[in-house]
Structure formats: structure tokens, C-alpha cells
Design a binder for these strands. Structure first.
Ligand SMILES: [Zn+2]
Length: 284
DNA sequence: CCGCTGACCTGCCTGC
DNA sequence: TGCAGGCAGGTCAGCG
């Protein structure tokens, strides 16, 4: 369930814990969790590497290893990547275990098995191994403005929420933060992306950054199965403005929050604060 | 090219 | 208690 803020939180935790340590042994408990190369090669080739640094691109965790190699991870819906010091007994969702020379473990847990780990051999790049990484759109914390959104959404008839979820346009926004950003900006998620006015896009760009930054500050949101690299629960969910609040009163106007499916995902909004048509000021 | 739907996988919760 | 159906923070192939 991690979106950009949760992934960023995990990366920051790993960057504090991993650099300098060596992989001593690798144990793959579920073959489907390995995206590249074949499981046997993954196990043999990852062992012996030293961790150098941890970065993020969209929702991908990118770990640079020595000798120009790399380890990438996508958590998808239920993945967790964490360093464990006291080797308590692992969760039943443990999929890949990477023992470190100093006795700690890097664990990849993933209930639904949608997440993936990729080993990037020396001489190859992350994009060589994960082509879609090369198609990701702008990083919303670095490049975000009404002007950028206007050019990304130009001519698009799909709902504006669908456009926000398209990782080729903007990398890192997921279902919760799409709903939250649109709610804060007062834009109905069903409106065709290309019809949202420039002033509204200015507002949306600003709210996207605010919502993401706030979530990072609070260590990422959580429902129930998200943890950061140390296994500490995030704590943003109880602060959600609209996500998961179907039937409850809007925090601004008290109208009932609606839920509809957009692009196959649950979408929450307030019909009063986020009207389908532009609000027309009535004359007295 | 665009936009939508189902599939991937596992578990939890609700209602009959 | 059992069982069916809906839900879950993501992405991708396939189709019209
Ligand atoms: Zn409202």
C-alpha cells in the first residue's frame, strides 16, 4: 500500500542502516518475488555485495551495491523491506531473506506477492533490468506546478484522478494521495483531465506537494500492514481528509462523502466541495 | 495512440 | 460454522 511517502520513508531508514554492510547469504522463500534474474542467479550473485546507498524513483527503491551492481525493490500493495537486528521469528509473509555479515537481516515480506526484487548485475543499469523505470514521469516533490500539470493533462479525456495515478505522467502518487490531493484542491476526480482550469491546476499542484510532504513528515500513512524499515507503524491514516470516509460527513461542509470506482479503484470525494461542474456564483 | 477491464495473490470482513 | 462476495495503498497485458 505504499505510495511515494511510504517508499521515501523506507528509503531513508535503509540509507541509515545499510551502507557499508555486506550480504552474506540469500534465501528466497517465494520464487515469484524475484523479478530478475532467475532465482538461482539472484541468490548466487547478490551474495558477497556491499551496500553503498539507497535512493528512490517513483515507488521504486533503488539500492546501489559495490562493483556497479544494484538491488531494486517495488513494494506494490503489501510489500515491506526492513532491516532486522534481533532476529525474532519472521512473519509468515517473509518472501526473501538476506543475511548480513554483521548478523542482521534485510527482510522482504509481502502478503500478496505482488512486490518484486531485482538484482542488477555489474555493467547493467536499473533501466536495463526494469524498462518501465525509464518511462516514469516527473518526481512530484521536485517538478510540480500548474504549468507542468497543464502540459501533462492537455487533451486528456480520462478522469483527472486516472491521470494522477498514471506513473508515466507523475511518479509516486497512488490511490490515497490522489484522493487527498483532489479533495484539498476542490476538484472532482471524475472531471476529464484536460478540462481542469489552469487556476485549479495551480491549486492541485500545490496540494499534491503539501499532501506528500506532510505524509513524509508523519513517516507515511498506514492502514494496517505498512511498516517502515524498522517495522514501526506509520501514523497518517487517522489524519486522512477524505480517503476511506464514505458515508461520513465532509470535514469542511458536513455533506456525506461519496465513493465511486475510477480506473478500478475506490475513489472518495465530497460532491459539494468537489462539484462536477464549475461552481457558478449565484446572484442575490 | 487512448482508455478501460481483468488478472496477478492472499487475507480479512460482512452478510446470509 | 460455512461460504460467497467485496474489499485492500499497484501494475501490466490485452482488447475495442
Ligand atoms: Zn464538503
Amino acid at each position: 500500500m505504499p505510495e511515494l511517502p511510504e517508499v521515501e520513508t523506507v528509503c531513508r531508514g535503509l540509507q541509515l542502516q545499510l551502507p557499508g554492510s555486506f550480504v552474506s547469504e540469500v534465501d528466497v522463500l517465494r520464487d515469484d518475488s524475484i523479478g530478475y534474474p532467475e532465482v538461482e542467479e539472484f541468490i548466487d550473485q547478490l551474495a558477497g555485495h556491499r551496500f553503498e546507498s539507497v535512493t528512490r524513483r517513483g515507488k521504486y527503491i533503488l539500492i546501489n551495491l559495490d562493483r556497479g551492481a544494484g538491488l531494486a525493490c517495488h513494494l506494490r500493495m503489501s510489500g515491506r523491506l526492513m532491516v532486522v537486528k534481533d532476529l525474532q521469528q519472521p512473519s509468515r509473509f517473509l518472501r526473501v531473506r538476506m543475511g548480513l555479515k554483521d548478523g542482521r537481516e534485510l527482510r522482504f515480506e509481502d502478503m500478496r506477492v505482488f512486490g518484486r526484487l531485482w538484482y542488477v548485475p555489474p555493467g547493467k543499469t536499473f533501466v536495463d533490468v526494469i524498462p518501465t523505470l525509464g518511462e516514469l514521469g516527473v518526481e512530484p516533490l521536485d517538478q510540480m506546478s500548474g504549468e507542468i500539470l497543464a502540459s501533462l493533462f492537455d487533451g486528456k479525456k480520462q478522469p483527472v484522478k486516472t491521470a494522477l495515478l498514471d506513473q508515466r505522467l507523475i511518479a509516486g502518487i497512488g490511490n490515497i494521495y490522489a484522493d487527498e490531493s483532489l479533495y484539498q484542491a476542490g476538484i472532482n476526480p471524475l472531471r476529464p483531465a484536460g478540462t481542469v482550469k489552469r487556476a485549479e491546476l495551480d491549486k492541485l499542484a500545490n496540494e499534491i506537494q503539501k499532501v506528500l510532504k506532510r505524509a513524509i513528515k508523519h513517516r507515511g500513512s498506514t492502514l494496517s500492514d505498512y511498516r517502515d524499515s524498522e517495522g514501526v507503524n506509520g501514523n497518517y491514516q487517522n489524519k486522512a481528509g477524505v480517503y476511506g470516509r464514505e458515508g461520513l460527513p465532509c470535514r469542511v461542509c458536513k455533506s456525506e462523502i461519496e465513493r465511486v470506482k475510477i480506473a478500478g479503484r475506490s475513489s472518495h470525494f465530497c460532491l459539494v466541495c468537489q462539484p462536477i461542474k464549475a461552481v457558478r456564483k449565484s446572484r442575490k
